[in-house]
Amino acid sequence: YDVFLQCDSFRILHEDSWDGRVNSFFNATWNAIFEILEHSYVSLAGVLTLLTVSFFFVPTKLSRRRRALLGFLHAAAHITSAVLLMLLMELGIEICIRNHLLATSGYHTLYEWYRQAESEHFPDPTGLRARLEQWTFGLYPACIKYLMSAFDIPEVMAVTRSTICRKGIESLPRGGAIIYYVSVFLYFWVLSTPVVSMVFGSYLYVCINWFHIHFDEAFSSLRIANYKAFTRFHIKKSGDLEVFTLAVDKVPKEWMLDPDWDMEPKEPLQMSHTRRFPSKWRAASGWSDPTSVVRVVDQFVIPRTAVDPLLPDSAP
Rank of each mutant, 00 (worst) to 15 (best):
S63V: 02
P265R: 08
S9I: 14
S81N: 06
L311M: 03
I33S: 04
Y111N: 15
W261Y: 11
H100R: 10
R131N: 08
A45M: 09
D249P: 06
G127I: 02
T126F: 09
M148W: 01
E35T: 12
S162T: 03
E120Y: 07
V47L: 10
N99I: 06
L87E: 00
S272K: 06
P194A: 03
Q299H: 15
L172C: 14
H214R: 15
A150G: 07
L85F: 08
L44P: 04
Y180R: 05
S183D: 14
L51D: 00
F151A: 14
K61L: 02
A82R: 06
F230C: 12
S171P: 11
S314W: 09
K167I: 03
S63H: 06
F4G: 01
P173S: 15
V294A: 13
L101M: 12
D298G: 07
L257P: 03
R65I: 00
I164H: 01
F277D: 04
I224A: 12
H39A: 08
V307S: 03
D262A: 06
I178E: 15
K236Q: 11
T274V: 04
W189Y: 15
V243S: 07
D216P: 05
F188R: 09
K236N: 13
S314D: 08
S105E: 11
I302F: 10
F244I: 07
S162M: 10
S279R: 06
V196I: 02
N209A: 01
M256K: 13
D289I: 01
L110M: 11
G175C: 12
L85S: 13
P259L: 03
A158Q: 02
G168R: 06
E254K: 12
C207L: 09
H121D: 07
S81H: 04
M271L: 04
S63I: 06
F300G: 08
L204G: 05
